[in-house]
C-alpha cells in the first residue's frame, strides 16, 4: 500500500434517514469497497426518531472504522464525503450530517448532499446495469413510481397517504409478530402469506398512478381483530391486494412512458411475490426486469457514496454552511445532470 494519495478516487457516503446507519465507500469507477449497515431495532412499536438518532450516534464511530477496515484504505484516501440530506427523520438525518461535516472538515475534502430517493435509483442502476428504467421504489417510508425525463426523476405515481412497507409493518405489529434481528416484518408477513389459502376481498385503491393504503390497512386490521380469519389468509390477502395495486400502477407508468426496463428497489423489493408480479408485467411489455439485491435495496451508505460521486463529477458540492438537512426533499425537486448526458 502506498502512503501518498492514491491515483484512484474514492467517495465515502453516510446514510442515516431512518432506522439504519450505514457507511459506504466506493471508487469513482463504481467499485463498492465497503457497505456497512447498522440497524436500530425498536423494543416496541415503530421507529422513534430520537431513539434511532441516539443509536446512530452510538454506532457511527464503529461503523466508520469497520468501513475503512473493509475497504482497506485510509481516511486520507477519500476525495469526497457524501451524506443523505433528506428526505427522512430530522434527528436521524442530523446525526449523519454532523458526522459528514466533521469528516469533510477534518479531511479537507468537499461535501455533497444526496437525495435518499435518487440514491436508491442510482445504486439500482449501477448494480443491475439498468440504463433508463421505470423505477418502483417501495420501503417503509416511500412508495414511488418514477422515471427520468428531461433533467429530473419525475414522480409518475406515489402513495397519497402511508408507504406500503409501513402498511405491512403496522399490520404485522397489530398481529403481534415480533421483529427480530435480520428478519424484518415484511419477511414475516411474506412467510405467513405463503401459507394462506383463501383470498379475502379488501379495499383496492388506485387513483390513476397514485395509491392509497390507509383505508386498506384499517379494513384488514378490523378483520384481524374480529378473529374470524386465519392470520395466514389475512397476510395472503393483504399482500396480494397491495402488490397488485403496485403492479398495476407500475404497468401504467410503463405503458405511458414506453421505457424498456423496470427497476424494483427499496426494502420491500426483497419480497419474492412482488418480484414475480413485476417480472410478469415487464415480460408483457418486452421490458427487462431488474431487482436490486437486498444489501443495496435496503437503506445503505453505498448508494449515497455512488450518487455523491455522480453529483461531484458534475461539480455539485455543498458548502458546509448550506448543509442543513431537508426533511421533505422530494425526488422530483432534484436536478440530475449526470443522467442521460
Amino acid at each position: 500500500m502506498s502512503t501518498h494519495r492514491s491515483a484512484v478516487s474514492y467517495c465515502l457516503g453516510i446514510e442515516s434517514t431512518a432506522d439504519d446507519f450505514s457507511v459506504g465507500i466506493l471508487s469513482f469507477n463504481g467499485d463498492v469497497l465497503a457497505n456497512i449497515i447498522s440497524a436500530y431495532i425498536p423494543e416496541k412499536g415503530g421507529i422513534h426518531p430520537r431513539e434511532a438518532a441516539r443509536h446512530h450516534a452510538e454506532v457511527a464511530g464503529k461503523v466508520l472504522e469497520e468501513a475503512f477496515q473493509k475497504a482497506r484504505i485510509k481516511p486520507q484516501d477519500i476525495q469526497v464525503i457524501a451524506f443523505s440530506q433528506g428526505p427522512g427523520m430530522g434527528p436521524c438525518l442530523r446525526t449523519g450530517a454532523t458526522a459528514a461535516r466533521a469528516l469533510a472538515a477534518y479531511l479537507q475534502v468537499p461535501l455533497v448532499g444526496v437525495n435518499h430517493c435518487v440514491a436508491h435509483i442510482e445504486i439500482g442502476k449501477l448494480v443491475t446495469g439498468a440504463k433508463d428504467p421505470v423505477a418502483l421504489y417501495v420501503s417503509g417510508g416511500n412508495t414511488i413510481v418514477s422515471a427520468f425525463e428531461a433533467g429530473r426523476y419525475r414522480v409518475f405515481g406515489e402513495t397519497l397517504d402511508i408507504a406500503v412497507g409501513n402498511c405491512l409493518d403496522v399490520f404485522a405489529r397489530e398481529a403481534g409478530l415480533r421483529q427480530e434481528k435480520g428478519v424484518p416484518f415484511g419477511a414475516m408477513v411474506e412467510k405467513m402469506a405463503s401459507q394462506g389459502r383463501t383470498f379475502i376481498s379488501l379495499p383496492y385503491t388506485v387513483k390513476g398512478m397514485d395509491l392509497s393504503f390507509s383505508g386498506l390497512l384499517t379494513a384488514v386490521v378490523q378483520l384481524l381483530h374480529e378473529g374470524k380469519h386465519p392470520l395466514e389468509d389475512l397476510c395472503f390477502s393483504l399482500q396480494e391486494t397491495v402488490f397488485s395495486m403496485l403492479t398495476e400502477v407500475t404497468e401504467r407508468a410503463l405503458a405511458h412512458t414506453e421505457k424498456r426496463e423496470v427497476l424494483l428497489t427499496g426494502g420491500v423489493a426483497a419480497n419474492k411475490r412482488l418480484q414475480s408480479m413485476l417480472s410478469q408485467i415487464a415480460d408483457e411489455h418486452d421490458a427487462r426486469f431488474c431487482v436490486v439485491p437486498k444489501e443495496y435495496a435496503l437503506d445503505n451508505g453505498a448508494m449515497i457514496a455512488w450518487t455523491g460521486i455522480l453529483a461531484y463529477q458534475h461539480n455539485i458540492t455543498l458548502p458546509v454552511e448550506k448543509s442543513f438537512v431537508k426533511l421533505r426533499w422530494r425526488l422530483d425537486a432534484v436536478y440530475a445532470p449526470w443522467v442521460g448526458g
Binding site: 406515489e158 421533505r328 426533499w329 422530494r330
Partner: peptide, 16 residues
C-alpha cells in the same frame, strides 16, 4: 391540502 398531505412536500410547498 392533498399536496401537503403527500410525502415530503416542504412546508413552503415547493412542488417541482
Amino acid at each position: 391540502e392533498i399536496e401537503k398531505r403527500g410525502r415530503y412536500v416542504s412546508e413552503r410547498k415547493e412542488v417541482a
